[in-house]
Structures are given as C-alpha cells and as structure tokens.
Nucleic acid binder design. Structure first.
Lengths: 170, 170
DNA sequence: CTTTTGATGAGTCATCTGTATCATAAAAAT
DNA sequence: ATTTTTATGATACAGATGACTCATCAAAAG
C-alpha cells in the first residue's frame, strides 16, 4: 500500500480512502488493466481502413495483445502478474475474466464470419480456432515480456499462423 | 522461509542451512522445477512405441507440458509463478531458461527432421514452427491452470494444430 | 452558506518476514 | 575415535506491512 502510494505520488491515506483493503486494491487494478487492454484492442481495430477483411480484423485484434511499445509492455506485464496471482487466489478473478471472455467471443465471431464468407480455408470450428489463436497470443505475449523474442518477431509468428489458416495451400 | 519450512515439515533453520538467502531458495526452486519438467517430457517420449513418427514425437513432447494430472498441475503452477517473478526480477532466471532453450532446440530439430523426411506439409522454417508451437503450448498451459479449459481439451487443440501442420489438405 | 466529498498528515498496533546467532545432538564419513 | 555433515531449538532483531484512528483542510455540491 505504501509503495503504491509513493509511486503514485499520493498519501497512503488516500490509497486507503479509495481501496479499503489490499484485496480491493488488487481487484481494482485487475479490472483497470482489463479496461486498458480492451481499449488498446478497440483502438487497433478502429485504425483499420475500410473495408475490413476478416483476416485483417483478426490480425489487428490479436496483434494488439502483443506488447510492441513501452505502454503495452507495462500493461501486459502488470496484467500477467495479476493474472498469475489469480491462479493461486481465485477469488481475485471475477471482473478480469469477463473481459477475456468477451474477447474470446469476439474472435470466435470473426472466425465464423470468415468461414461464412468463404475466406477461411482451415478445418475446425470457429470456437476451436479462436481458443487456439488466443492461447498462441498469450504464449507470444509472455515470450516478448521475457525478451525471448522481439515484439516484431512475435507478431510475424502470429501473422504466419493466421495466414496459414486463411491460405494453407501456399 | 518459515512457510516453506512448515510445509516441508522441517525447521526454519534447515531451510537457511541449504539456502542462505531467500533469493538462493527461489533460484533453487526454479532450477528444480526445470528439472522436474524436463523429466516429465523425457518420460512421455520414452513411453512411445517404436518406430517414432516425427508427429507423434512432437505430440508427446509438447503434450507433456500440459498439466493433465495433479502432479503436473502443481509443477506447472509453481513454474508459472516463478517464471512470472523473473519477468520483474531478471537476475533470478539463469538456469531455468537454459532448460527452456534446450527444449526449443529439440522441438526445432524434430520439425527439421519431419521436413527432411517429407512428413511436414506446412510452410515456414523449423525454427518458426517450433517457436509458434511452444508459444501455443504456453498459452494452453495457462488456460488449463486458470480452469478455462480442461486438460483434455487443451491437448486436442494442440493436436489439431500439429495435425494441421502435418496434413493441411484435409 | 452549509454539507458532502476528496485529500493529507502523523502516528499507533500487531504481525510478518528475512536474517543472524548460539547451543546442541544425532548421523555419517574419515 | 574423531571430525564433518546434517538437523533442530530457541531466540533476537530490525525493517516491512496492512489496517486503523484522529485531526485538519481545501474543494465541490447542495
């Protein structure tokens, strides 16, 4: 609590004013991070030029989850830390997972759309493709945070995966 | 330190005897977890019946990283927690990453072998395929630990990904 | 103008925590 | 038989930490 207050340039008393306990603070942070990540994804999608092909949409959405700038790195690092904490403290999870669930649905919807419009060449139902793509992004995220790959490399791995789904004959 | 001693049914003094500081304890645990995970992978590979097709080998190796029993869950959960810690305390990493690097090389080698023997249908160099597959497994691992998917489902997602690389025409 | 809300300061309390010290004793190695 | 290794017990201590209280004050809302 003291450390958070100091880092924020604020009195300890104020932190206690808004977050009565440390648990409330942690849940609050997890929710806040979820929102920031959601906004980053929305911004990336909004930056697309019309018309939006399903493949490009998915590239933008999923690519936004890979930390390619300092802000993204900080957000993703903090989110990863809090997410890992929820693995042993499940009662801290509620709000954060809602965001993740919404994202999963959105990705699955895009895959469904791609299938309907005949752009998708790969087998497997949209739910499966979405779950796989999201797991891949999670792993790539971590590899970037751990400095195993630069962000650009991780993005190209993600794009290669998507390209393979949309045009496997190449 | 006290909590570790109590959990191990051992005196605090003994923990201090083998690990002079908390940092040493954490590094030691990280190394120990790396070994246990490596052994689990080796065991899974050793259980294969000859002759070993490249695809089956990769399925075994990578599948062993998905926690499908209680022991696996504990090991992977502890490893994930320590790995996440190294993201903000990089000096705790040295030994743990060596194991991961060895695994990456091994997976890449198998992909190379599959390509050479004509079993691999997908494009992309072995290094890329290995990095992608490992990132996917990391993400699936986390999804299982977070109870987003049962282990069997994660394994089937992994197998679907590998099948797609080995037989994309289906 | 008065009340509510947002913000700070100073300090207390009990507990947790990493580290350290000294004495001791069984067990294993030499 | 003696030395070294492995293990425990009992504290001690300084610093960190979460939670709480009381007093105070500026700003915004009513």
């Amino acid at each position: 609590m003291r450390e958070v207050a100091a880092e924020a340039g604020v009195s300890l008393r104020l932190v206690q004013y808004y977050f009565h306990t440390k648990e409330e603070l942690l849940s609050g942070v997890l929710g806040h991070l979820g929102e920031r990540i959601g906004r980053r994804v929305q911004d990336a999608v909004a930056a697309l030029t019309e018309p939006v092909a399903p493949a490009a949409y998915l590239r933008a959405m999923l690519g936004a989850l890979i930390p390619h700038d300092e802000d993204g790195r900080q957000v993703m690092l903090a989110y990863t830390a809090h997410f890992t904490l929820t693995l042993s403290q499940p009662h801290l999870a509620p709000e954060g997972l809602a965001q993740a669930e919404a994202l999963r649905g959105s990705v699955a919807g895009r895959f469904q759309q791609a299938r309907d419009s005949g752009h998708l060449a790969a087998a497997g139902d949209p739910e499966t493709l979405a779950a796989t793509a999201l797991a891949l992004v999670t792993g790539l995220q971590l590899s970037v945070l751990a400095n195993q790959h630069p962000a650009a490399h991780a993005t190209s791995l993600l794009n290669a995966h998507l390209d393979h789904l949309f045009a496997p004959s190449a």
